[in-house]
C-alpha cells in the first residue's frame, strides 16, 4: 500500500492509518492481523464444540450489523432502529424461500433489496433530522417495524414466528460449514465497507459527519451521501437477517426489537465509533457476554446496562480509542512539531 499522501485514507483519525515514521507499528499491526486471520480460519478446529461455533457465528453476524450502523454513524447520525432492517431482511428471505419456493440466492438478494428500498424511501425524509430527533425517529421506526411484523400474521406468522427455515444449501446444515459461510460473508461485508470508507466516498462521509456546511460548500452533496450510507447499511442489515434466519431456522418479531438495535449501538460505543475496528471488537466482546451469566438473565441485562454507562463515562472513544492511545505511546516516535 502506497504510503504517500496520495493514498491518505478517508479519515486521519483512523487508528490503523499507516505512518511511514513508525515501521514498528506497521509490523505490529500486520502481525496482529495475521494472528486474527489464522485464528478465525482454524477456530472450528480449536473449539469444535457446537456451543463455541454457535457463539462464533452469532458474533460474525452481529458484526455485519454493527459495521452497518458504523457506516451511518460516520455520517453523523445515531440510529436506534437498525434492527428493523435486519428483521425485514430476515422475513423477506424467509418468505421468498418458504412461501415462494425460490432458491436461497433469491432470498438473499431479496434481503438486500427490500430493506435497501425502504431505506431509500424514508431516508431522505428521516435523515433531515439530527441528533436526538433522529435517534427518536429511528427508535420509533424500530418499534413500528416490530408491530407490523407482529400484525401481519398471514405473512409473518405473528408472534409465533416462523419455524423450519431451511439452510441455504444442504451442505450448510452443519455448524462448521455455516461458520465458514458466515465468515466469508462477514469478511466480504467488512471488506466492502473498508473499501468504501477509504475511498473518496468515505472522505465525503467523514466530512458530512463533522460539518454539513463546510462539506456542502466544497461540493459534497451532504444529503445524498447520507442517504447512500443509510441504504447501504440497511442492505447489510438485510444480509445479516437473511443469514440469521437460515442459520437459526426460526425467527420471530421479538428478536428484531429495540434490544437488537441497542446491541449495534453498544458495539460501536464500547468498541469505539471512530474506526471500523471498533464495532468489530465491540460485537466480539458484547455478544458472548450474556453467555457468562447464563441463568441470570436479569443480571446479564443489568451488567449490560452498566457496561454501557461505564464505558461512555470513562472511555468515550471506546476500547479501540483506549487501546490505540496506548499503542501510539508504545510505538510511535514523537516528531518535532508534535503529534496529538
Amino acid at each position: 500500500m502506497d504510503n504517500s499522501a496520495r493514498d491518505v485514507p478517508a479519515t486521519s483519525s483512523a487508528p490503523l492509518r499507516m505512518r511511514s515514521s513508525s515501521t514498528r507499528l506497521i509490523l505490529a499491526q500486520i502481525a496482529a492481523i495475521a494472528v486474527i486471520v489464522i485464528g478465525l480460519l482454524v477456530w472450528p478446529a480449536l473449539f469444535p464444540q457446537e456451543f463455541y461455533l454457535h457463539i462464533a457465528i452469532l458474533v460474525l453476524l452481529s458484526i455485519i450489523g454493527s459495521v452497518a450502523l458504523h457506516l451511518v454513524m460516520r455520517t453523523g447520525r445515531l440510529s436506534l432502529g437498525q434492527a428493523a432492517f435486519c428483521g425485514l431482511g430476515a422475513y423477506t428471505s424467509t418468505f421468498l424461500v418458504m412461501k415462494v419456493h425460490a432458491p436461497f440466492v433469491m432470498g438473499f438478494l431479496g434481503a438486500i433489496v427490500v430493506p435497501g428500498l425502504l431505506a431509500l424511501a424514508i431516508g431522505p425524509v428521516v435523515l433531515r433530522l439530527r441528533g436526538v430527533y433522529f435517534a427518536l425517529i429511528t427508535f420509533a421506526l424500530g418499534e413500528v417495524m416490530q408491530l407490523l411484523l407482529l400484525d401481519a400474521q398471514p405473512l409473518t406468522g405473528g408472534a409465533d414466528g416462523i419455524f423450519g427455515i431451511p439452510p441455504p444449501a444442504v451442505f450448510l446444515n452443519s455448524p462448521v460449514a455455516y461458520y465458514y459461510f458466515a465468515l466469508i460473508v462477514t469478511a466480504a461485508c467488512i471488506g466492502f465497507v473498508y473499501a468504501l470508507l477509504s475511498s473518496q466516498v468515505g472522505r465525503a462521509l467523514d466530512a458530512i459527519g463533522e460539518t454539513d456546511n463546510l462539506a456542502e460548500a466544497a461540493g459534497i452533496a451532504a444529503s445524498r451521501f447520507r442517504v447512500f450510507a443509510f441504504v447501504v447499511a440497511a442492505s447489510m442489515l438485510g444480509i445479516e437477517g437473511s443469514l440469521f434466519a437460515h442459520y437459526l431456522g426460526y425467527i420471530s418479531p421479538q428478536v428484531f426489537g429495540f434490544n437488537a438495535s441497542l446491541l449495534y449501538v453498544a458495539a460501536n460505543v464500547v468498541g469505539g465509533s471512530t474506526s471500523l475496528v471498533g464495532p468489530i471488537i465491540g460485537s466480539a466482546f458484547l455478544v458472548p457476554l450474556p453467555e457468562f451469566l447464563r441463568g441470570f438473565v436479569q443480571y446479564q441485562q443489568i451488567l449490560y446496562g452498566a457496561v454501557l454507562l461505564i464505558v461512555v463515562t470513562i472511555a468515550p472513544r471506546g476500547l479501540v480509542g483506549a487501546i490505540t492511545g496506548k499503542m501510539r505511546l508504545c510505538f510511535s516516535r514523537r516528531k518535532d512539531g508534535g503529534d496529538e
Partner: peptide, 18 residues
C-alpha cells in the same frame, strides 16, 4: 466554522478539493 476541527490540516485541504 473555519475548518473541520477533528480532521488534520491536510485532510481539511483535501476535503476542500473534493
Amino acid at each position: 466554522t473555519a475548518s473541520y476541527p477533528s480532521a488534520s490540516v491536510l485532510e481539511n485541504a483535501i476535503r476542500g478539493a473534493f
